[in-house]
Design a protein around this nucleic acid. Sequence first.
RNA 1: UCCAGCGUAGCUCAAUGGUGGAGCAUUCGGCUGUUAACCGAAGGGUUGCAAGUUCGAGUCUUGCCGCUGGAGCCA
Length: 427
Amino acid sequence: MLIRDIAQFDGKQITLAGWVYNKRSSGKIRFVIVRDGTGLTQCVFSQKDLSPEVFELADKITQESSLYVTGMVRKDDRAPGGYELIATDLKLIQMADNYPISPKEHGTDFLMTNRHLWLRSRRQHAIITIRSHLIKAMRDFFDNQGFILVDTPILTPAAVEGTTTLFEVEYFGEKTYLTQSGQLYNEPDAAAFNKVYCFGPTFRAEKSKTRRHLTEFWMIEPEVAFADLNDIITLAEDFISYIVERVLTKCPEQFKVLERDISKLEKITKPFPRITYTEAIEKLNANSKPVKWGDDFGGDEETVLSNLNDKPLVITHYPAQCKAFYMKRDSNDDKLALGADILAPEGYGEIVGGGQREDDLATLEKRIAEYKLPKQAFEWYLDVRRYGTFPHSGFGLGVERTLAWICALPHVRETIPYPRMLEKVYP
RNA sequence: UCCAGCGUAGCUCAAUGGUGGAGCAUUCGGCUGUUAACCGAAGGGUUGCAAGUUCGAGUCUUGCCGCUGGAGCCA
């Protein structure tokens, strides 16, 4: 019997197993709020109806003690959630020690060192529940469209893109690195399966200390054979509008707990506005955020652009110098890359990065040399161009940034159960 | 790595250079429908660490450590 199903048991006797969330008392009556991981319900202990032992236990029981409580379910408007349990018996599993998270305000550092306990609180519970539904929606979207899930490795040889700082792992005397993206592996996988996606954790050893950064975060990355830049942007629009709609349908209670203004999410319908990098620069200059053509956008610029619309904003045709070596160039202007980033609205910034891949062997070899990457490490990757090369495109979407936007959270750290941040790996 | 702010009870925070307090949590007591219940009482402190200035430092100075925010960095 779970609390989430309590309404079905109105008027019936049930036994709940759970933990004490909070307790209130008045004279000869005790209200124990019980939490079982699926919901909260108020259990009412009246002295006149109970043995002295049971009433005494209900009086003494501490926050987060584990217990079984038996009683009759009753609809009552005075109870939080609309239903309560008129208790007839209480069995203690364990009397909890003095619980550190009291029902008052706490600081971030304290809550993060108690992250394993903080997850029991309503807000955190709501966020992680939405995360679960969000990930299910993401996987369903690709599965329903005939994509094959092809897992990419977490341990990778040599520095792959040569741009970001990677975590080094000693691998039987050899240097390996924790993956920063499944991207390069997705490309041969697309040649094998046509439409593929990978989903897993990625790692960046950057010393970034901002509301948008984690050192360990989750990405879902589709790669589509014979798709061009335009095709992949359309896919991303379909994808984002689908996952937002799904969590809105599945998680109304959780959004209520978070006090999220869901009318803003209801506007997330395709198509999304699309502008080029050059147009974005013009908009920034018009919004007194002058940026030189050729510079990448920083956090401030992303926030300004992100606030321009109600919908995610697609920015295409970045200067090639800002983008990875494998990005295909615009045939009309070799300085531009056929890439697209998508910025979430409400100031949340980049959630998607992707584009069309360079599919010409000679050009790609030239790029590898230009970016001063060790060609030998990329022979397997170049094979995709040697044996039946094909136009293909893909993108990566960061789960935590997307969830932070969907839940309107000020920081990504609450969107993952156990965040890994700069010099923070406990618990 | 750089800049700024902060570090006081288990937690969140007060305290003009002059006897370190409150709320929550804990313990005890009261109240027959509480809604982060309320009311009364009690226990709880090497004021991050080290040095310095001063008759006197939680408060001022220096260094170190830690945290927070931001920058840089970052598909």
